[in-house]
Design a protein around this nucleic acid. Structure first.
Lengths: 348, 348
DNA sequence: TTTTAACACGCAAACGTTTTCGTGACTTTT
DNA sequence: AAAAGTCACGAAAACGTTTGCGTGTTAAAA
């Protein structure tokens, strides 16, 4: 149960100086072949590994990136993490996670915990509460201290940093166009309130698709859910509202939903009302989730390529970390990930 | 774009020594009220925060725990992480993740990356490959260097460390008993090959329940899947085998599956064959997953309380980290989490 | 007025590295 | 034999903290 061995201990044991040990381990030609051999043998025997913390302090670089997300029990976010971790590991970085749980204060606390030297940069997606309060001071303070930030998915134009987003607008537009080309005339939209940037963009894509096809959008076919509620409550309320929508407008022949749960709920309500999916009503969701694939019928979705987003975000961040900071010439990029329509059985 | 401010800079700016600044910030009574006021005002103005890395080095303590899991895009594991993160944060720790991707070598590499000073202890679940190879040297080496380990879910008795497991045996037994009390006489089992410890235990629970109820287990009703295959391939093969099973033994009136996907596949095949769930055949799965709740019919499951497992594991680890090491009197505990049968529509 | 005590602060070591520079002991050159 | 050069190594600083101890100054006690 001995502690990890250090240079100092090797030095004492072998009766040389710390510097000699350090150099010998690096095969420095300042050191004689004899000494090198001796030191390396000893180090191997005791399984010497340089202490990361000491290295971090010396180099002022931790080789660790922090990722802050609203929730981890969520396919989208866990896929993003997987992407981040993949790239990070390949490039010699560790990943440390913080969960904001959709709360502004937890987001701030988490960022402060990590910003004090623990990491070299952030990858994050904003919590709903932050989005709602529109208080971005913590991001700017962090960046002012030289800590780079890459935001993904839930972004906001007020913050100047690198971003990775999905093409929500065109993803939605393509999905709706698909429904239109499948002869749907009355396409309902189930979306979130507008403060969620992605919901807003998807709504715009929906509208654009309709207009380009000379279909007049009907306000009554658009259901805007308040998703700040508790999950369970939310679900029941959701189904009730969808049912009302369907009953009040029985000519609805398709639904486009901005997330998985909304789409599934729509299918569930339809089934309950005796409607056949996709014959009576077609459904498309916007998600990378696993439910879509295993639902009955399986759900046609707009895939967001979550893992790819994570990979790109990690590359962007690490590039920024490793590039020499060229003064005021700071340029931020926004990478847009294309969506992909995955056709399954909920559309014709 | 200034760097984070340090004690040294404050000291220089205020023309006092570094120690004075450090003490002043801690309200040491060695320092005059004047100086304290001056220093604290300055520190606040420049938003001084002690550098974590320097603290870690000095204290030989990082206040960070490492968690290594086989896969993150998985409800069970992400829930565990959530539990770990919750407790860790409350107790002032960060969480750093490593994904083994079910590979032995990635597990080893990840552990080595973190063991060199980056963290104070590990929480981990073994990869399938490690389980298969039965090579545990990296765990023992890590523990020999004074780094505590808590294992969860997939554990193995050969390794002496703290563990958090779910009561797989009784969870399975209760589920099968439920089926029996629902008048099922011919209960099939879909499980994994025995090298996965949890699969083995669940199989034993199944057998025990049958025997206690004077039902003779039929070897032919037990399907042991090789789950080392690729996901997609696996799924198709799985469905094929289940279909064969059902066709060869049309008297099967219930299925107990050791995970979510197996249970869902069973329901899917049943539906395809025109069997009604739960009237013709009842199904129970062993999972904390999200699919169960949203499948049609919704699936009765044995819940594993994944988040609770994470919380317990984190508490166990942090307790160990923070307790003074009392020599050779090291005691390891194993916490057993009780399962819970969540009844839904796939059983009567 | 001398001794003692309190006060307010600075020095230096330590955590574990890396790296620059210096230096003593040889060896080679002239 | 003196000058120059090579070799092999060590000392020390630096990264940013914390903290025990030493010390100079002033105020109180004798």
């Amino acid at each position: 149960m001995r502690r990890k061995i250090t240079l100092k201990q090797i030095a004492r044991e072998l009766d040389v100086s710390i510097s000699t040990v350090s150099k010998a381990l690096k095969n420095s030609k300042e050191i004689s072949a004899d000494t090198i051999q001796k030191v390396q043998a000893f180090a191997k025997l005791y399984n010497y590994r340089p202490n990361n913390i000491a290295l971090s302090l010396k180099n002022r670089k931790t080789n660790t990136i922090g990722i802050i997300i609203p929730e981890i029990v969520h396919h989208f976010f866990s896929k993003v993490i997987r992407g981040v971790e993949l790239v990070a590991n390949n490039r010699g970085y560790n990943v440390i996670i913080g969960l904001s749980n959709e709360s502004f204060s937890k987001e701030v606390i988490n960022m402060e915990m990590l910003a004090n030297g623990s990491i070299d940069g952030f990858i994050l997606s904003m919590s709903k509460e932050t989005l709602l309060q529109q208080d971005y001071h913590h991001y700017n303070e962090t960046m002012n201290q030289g800590m780079p930030i890459v935001m993904f998915d839930r972004v906001v134009s007020e913050i100047k940093c690198d971003k990775v987003i999905v093409d929500d607008f065109n993803g939605a537009k393509n999905a709706v166009e698909k429904l239109i080309s499948n002869d749907c005339k009355h396409i309902a939209l189930i979306t979130t309130k507008d403060y969620v940037s992605v919901g807003k963009l998807r709504t715009q894509g929906y509208l654009e698709a309709l207009q380009e096809n000379k279909i007049t959008p009907e306000a009554e076919l658009i259901l805007k859910m308040d998703d700040t509620l508790d999950y369970e409550v939310h679900l029941e309320k959701l189904e009730g509202e969808i049912e009302q929508l369907f009953k009040a407008h029985d000519y609805i022949d398709a639904v486009f939903a901005v997330n998985e749960l909304y789409a599934l709920s729509a299918m569930k309500v339809a089934r309950k009302m005796g409607l056949n999916v996709p014959n009576d009503i077609q459904v498309i969701g916007f998600t990378d989730g696993v439910l879509s694939k295993h639902s009955t019928p399986s759900l046609t979705t707009v895939s967001q390529h979550a893992q790819l987003m994570g990979e790109r975000a990690a590359d962007l961040l690490i590039d920024k970390i490793e590039t020499e900071f060229n003064e005021e010439e700071e340029q931020f990029q926004t990478i847009v990930i294309n969506t992909e329509l995955v056709e399954r059985d909920s559309t014709k």
